[in-house]
């Protein structure tokens, strides 16, 4: 291959990567840009990407359109509780499935996989009725309880635990470590990449969850951020895109922050499972 060919190849590669990057980054930039424009600017033709004068006031307006502090607090409590409870359930379950022999193990694991395949839409009415029955509809609990267990997480973590050599667990047992200590001191530190991945997926899906809270909540006090932002649209009968986008930026920031902290671990998790 000649030098010219190689450069052509490289250039083509970069062009394609740039194209893909634009496809992914553009909507994000568009959101950022719109969130800083005036109402008039959002309607102007041709559209402008760089706002003439950044309208930081949009954020203040979005946040004052409703009890956003409450929404934010609700979202944070719900999402963090879900992740914490999921980890508490998932780690021992995955450990048992990966490292124990017990009767009925395969059937139980199949049930977990089955749970993972049932679409949420099938269960939401019964779950709604159940939660209403329990009389907890006015609390944040209905947004947390249905998601306490994460079948996909159990599956992924079990696969990861299975890669950890049996001897390490046995060595710990000979070192007089109890099963919970083995999980805490050995399995969990060795599975950080997988745990970070699962936690991030869980965070993104529950932070952004719209459908379930929409069904389950009927009061301002328990609504999450996603509902609050969706409601921005309906104020005054016209679409205040600049305000909605300002709200969306606020919604997205925590996800970006979490991703910044987790990205290294996540890449590791996928690299590991690729090699093994």
């Amino acid at each position: 291959m000649t030098k010219a060919w190689r450069y052509t190849g490289l250039t083509l590669g970069y062009l394609l990567k740039t194209a893909i990057l634009i496809v992914f980054v553009f909507p994000f930039l568009w959101m950022l840009s719109t969130s800083l424009q005036t109402y008039r600017e959002t309607l102007s033709y041709p559209p402008t990407l760089v706002p003439a004068m950044p309208q930081w006031i949009n954020f203040a307006e979005a946040m004052s359109a409703g009890p956003f502090l409450t929404y934010f607090k609700n979202s944070a409590i719900v999402t963090l509780s879900i992740i914490a409870i999921q980890l508490l359930v998932m780690i021992p379950a995955a450990y048992a499935f990966a490292k124990y022999k017990f009767p009925g193990k395969n059937i139980l694991f199949s049930l977990v996989l089955l749970a993972f395949m049932i679409p949420g839409q099938v269960t939401f009415i019964p779950v709604y009725l159940m939660m209403a029955d329990w009389g907890i509809a006015k609390t944040l609990l209905p947004q947390i309880i249905p998601f306490m267990s994460n079948a996909f997480g159990i599956f992924l973590l079990r696969q990861y635990f299975m890669q950890i050599p049996e001897e390490i667990v046995e060595a710990a047992r000979l070192d007089n470590a109890g099963e919970f200590k083995i999980m805490r001191k050995i399995m969990v530190p060795m599975s950080m990449p997988a745990l970070a991945t699962i936690a991030l997926f869980s965070f993104v899906s529950h932070w952004n969850d719209y459908f379930w809270p929409l069904i389950m909540t009927d009061a301002e006090a328990i609504r999450p951020l996603t509902l609050g932002i969706a409601m921005l649209r309906e104020t005054e009968g016209i679409s205040n895109w600049h305000i909605i986008m300002a709200g969306n930026v606020v919604l997205v920031i925590p996800i970006l922050l979490v991703y910044l902290f987790c990205s290294k671990q996540i890449v590791k998790a996928f690299v590991y499972s690729g090699i093994k």
Binding site: E167, I168, A171, A172, L174, K185, I186, P189
Partner: peptide, 15 residues
Amino acid sequence: GVAMVFQNYAIYPTM
């Protein structure tokens, strides 16, 4: 009251 040395050493890699 027993201790064991394994073929692959089974050292805890994160410690």
